[in-house]
Design a protein around this nucleic acid. Sequence first.
DNA 1: GTCTATAGTCGGATAGAC
DNA 2: GTCTATCCGACTATAGAC
Lengths: 227, 227
Amino acid sequence: MDPEIMRYRSSSCQRGEGTRRRILETAIEVFGTYEYDGASTRMLAERAGVNLPAIQYYFGSKEGLYRAAIEQIIRDIEERMSPVAAHVTARLAETDLDRGGVLDLLHLLLDNFAEFVLSGDQPEARKRLLVRAEADGMNALEPLQASMAENVVGPARALVGRLIGRAPEDQCTGLRTLAILGQVGVFCNRGARQGLGWTEIGGDRVRAVQAIVREHTAAIFAAIGPS
Amino acid sequence: MDPEIMRYRSSSCQRGEGTRRRILETAIEVFGTYEYDGASTRMLAERAGVNLPAIQYYFGSKEGLYRAAIEQIIRDIEERMSPVAAHVTARLAETDLDRGGVLDLLHLLLDNFAEFVLSGDQPEARKRLLVRAEADGMNALEPLQASMAENVVGPARALVGRLIGRAPEDQCTGLRTLAILGQVGVFCNRGARQGLGWTEIGGDRVRAVQAIVREHTAAIFAAIGPS
DNA sequence: GTCTATAGTCGGATAGAC
DNA sequence: GTCTATCCGACTATAGAC
């Protein structure tokens, strides 16, 4: 689709701003639940309490709304994770950081990541869209992946690389990093959670996951050091 | 939708059997790529090299074809994982099984699980549909979850429970089990793999994942025993 | 900015010939 | 069993009044 149709009233006066936001919030919810093709503009409009053409007016098209929803998710990641990423990067540059310090930073990163993907403001909706965007065929996900790479995977690789005495770009570093992050990621899967009897995730459960992942990660790097 | 419209020519004479299979294989591929609503019956028919009404003829409806595709995936899981599950269960019932033996069984299970989800016959298509089915709103996924629970998660919980001295149904057992399985699961995510430069997964890469997960798992249970 | 009405397209399903 | 032709509903998007 034409790349130059975005920003249709991206932030106009005042009157429409509330409407715009309501449509956007609804869209994150609905696209997350029904997937792009499964969510009709009628459903979107109805649930947002607006009329049909409002979508065209504010976002140009259904696809424009979808892209705006993804961008909102990216802003959420950025807001939540980039301070952590920046802190990790800064501390990692210091010279007086011992192995225990690096491990602490990894725990910090994992804790924040767990809290972000498992909890969050709109618990289910946002993360579902995040996961769903994985293979949408519209390439609306590339910036999302880039943001995840920059704010989560990148810093994690740097830490893991340091712990095992390899470069962050090293393939082995990447493998171990993904495996460790995967311990958190599974819990995004609704099917997986059902086996625990968890229909929803609250603060207690986020902390339970954090504790387990901490223990596992500590055990892994107690056994595996610089070769 | 009416539950009694399935099995429309489930296995008729001979002539149509080849056609039926071709449609089914195509459906797994196409539903996996474009999602249920994104895949049109026209696209399905064209790629399978059949005419439009063939879908109605063999599967009753688009939804019938979808359910048949999911059932095929379930048969694949069953075929691949249930022998492993049976072996694990049998060995676990024996009395002369020491801690090392239990850990070996867990490694066996994880190796097979990794090989199943990462490799397989039709590499990408099948597992994408498997992941996609997660929240389809049609409840076609329940038997799939049940199959995964029986053939993968269940045996894994039994092993992990034994290793940490807790019941398989224990919540803590479940948490650790999912975290460990998650180490394998991440690699299903295309976005995650891209960070490794892996556009596709072959035998070497499956073995690399298996090796890493083995090391991590061994380290975890070296540090964490019966409390 | 907000809305009603409607245009134009495409999808799932069916009828009925062969 | 296989196919062409077609129906009909649902969808995205737009025109234009207020």
